[in-house]
């Protein structure tokens, strides 16, 4: 394998493929691994998948086509059979090593009554590069997609994902996003369309470094009666700029949404903005939001110190709690990595 200096475990990728129903790995523009172990789940390089009309129809349906992005090198295409409930997650990994620009087009289709988890890790060697990831997800009637994305970029990497998600009747989309060691610049605003009785839960935890400028948001259109959305964004800044956005749009009566943007500043020189936006286009909707930006309270630190923790340890316990590391169901190896990262970054603050 070509992978040089990136520890794949850290982004949730298990090279031995234990407890995985399938794997896809791309380094720069080259597909280095692509296969499935569980019947009823298909993992195909996008370029190959769209040769078939049946699959081609998913291209540019959840997002508006944008020729300015240029041609994509590849990406993963994952589809389940109707009713298939995958036991193990599919893992994918996109790495930048030598190329200056990586442009991928990813598609996930969860067929009716089917359930799937996808764990995707994106990383790079620590140098310059641009990652443009176009992702289109389709969760069909009563289907369930749990999408977990881990970003761990080199300091000078710029990342511009475009994501569109279509959640059909009674379907569920859960997204957990973890970003530590963020690149220089990330700008993303995934858009999710939810039909009647659909459910969307989006959690994100972002640790912003000194050199980074992170602008992240989630936009959800509640389009059918009974559609629900919950967006929880937590961002911790160790210097650098962090903007957390959220936009909930209620298009029909009888929908419900909650938006929470919270930022914690740990170091002077940080700029943290929380920008929640609620938009109702009809009566009888229930939209709420909560936004807060602040620092760790002295009393909380003292409380933990009285239990035997050093000020640094106290801080990382509080930050870890703030980020919901234990609430979101993350792989153990990733939790350990986050802990190590927090330990290092809270030193000397």
């Amino acid at each position: 394998m070509r992978v040089k200096s990136v520890d794949l475990k850290k982004v949730g990728f298990d090279e031995r493929e234990v407890d995985r129903s399938g794997s896809y790995m791309q380094v720069d523009s080259e597909v280095v691994k692509c296969g499935v172990k569980e019947p009823g789940v298909y993992v195909i390089p996008t370029k190959k998948a769209i040769e078939c009309d049946e699959y081609r129809k998913y291209l540019w349906k959840a997002l508006k086509e944008d020729p300015s992005l240029g041609d994509f090198s590849n990406g993963y295409f994952i589809i389940t059979e109707p009713g298939k409930k995958a036991i193990f997650p599919v893992q994918t990994c996109l790495l930048i090593e030598d190329s200056n620009i990586q442009h991928v087009h990813n598609i996930i289709v969860v067929e009716e009554d089917s359930e799937l988890t996808v764990v995707t890790g994106c990383s790079s060697v620590p140098r310059k590069g641009t990652h443009i990831g176009v992702s289109e997800f389709y969760v069909k009637k009563r289907g369930k997609l749990h999408f977990m994305m881990i970003h761990m970029w080199g300091e000078e990497v710029e990342v511009y994902p475009r994501t569109g998600v279509i959640v059909e009747e009674g379907a569920t989309y859960v997204s957990d996003y973890v970003c530590f060691k963020p690149g220089a610049k990330i700008k993303a605003y995934p858009t999710i369309y939810v039909d009647r009785g659909g459910t969307v839960v989006v959690n994100s935890m972002v640790m912003v470094s000194e050199t980074s400028n992170i602008d992240l948001g989630t936009r959800v259109y509640l389009k059918g009666k009974g559609a629900r959305a919950e967006i929880v964004s937590r961002s911790v800044s160790f210097g650098g700029v962090s903007i957390t956005r959220g936009h909930l749009v209620a298009e029909v009566p009888g929908v419900k949404g909650h938006l929470e943007c919270k930022g914690l500043i740990l170091k002077d020189g940080s700029i943290v903005s929380a920008i929640p936006e609620l938009e109702a286009r009809t009566r009888d909707v229930d939209l709420t939001h909560e936004a807060a930006v602040g620092k760790i309270s002295e009393e909380e630190i003292e409380y933990l110190m009285a239990r035997g923790f050093t000020p640094e340890e106290a801080q990382s316990i509080i930050v870890r709690g703030f980020l919901n590391v234990d609430v979101v169901n993350l792989p153990e190896s990733l939790k350990e990595e986050i802990d190590k990262f927090l330990e290092l970054t809270t030193e000397g603050i």
Binding site: E302, L304, M305, A306, G321, D326
Partner: peptide, 22 residues
């Protein structure tokens, strides 16, 4: 503080603090 805890001092606060997410 933490060294005093190590030595064996323990305090029950008059007012406690809540720790979110833990």
């Amino acid at each position: 503080v933490y060294e005093r805890v190590n030595l064996g001092i323990g305090l029950a606060f008059q007012r406690s603090q809540s720790i979110d997410g833990v």
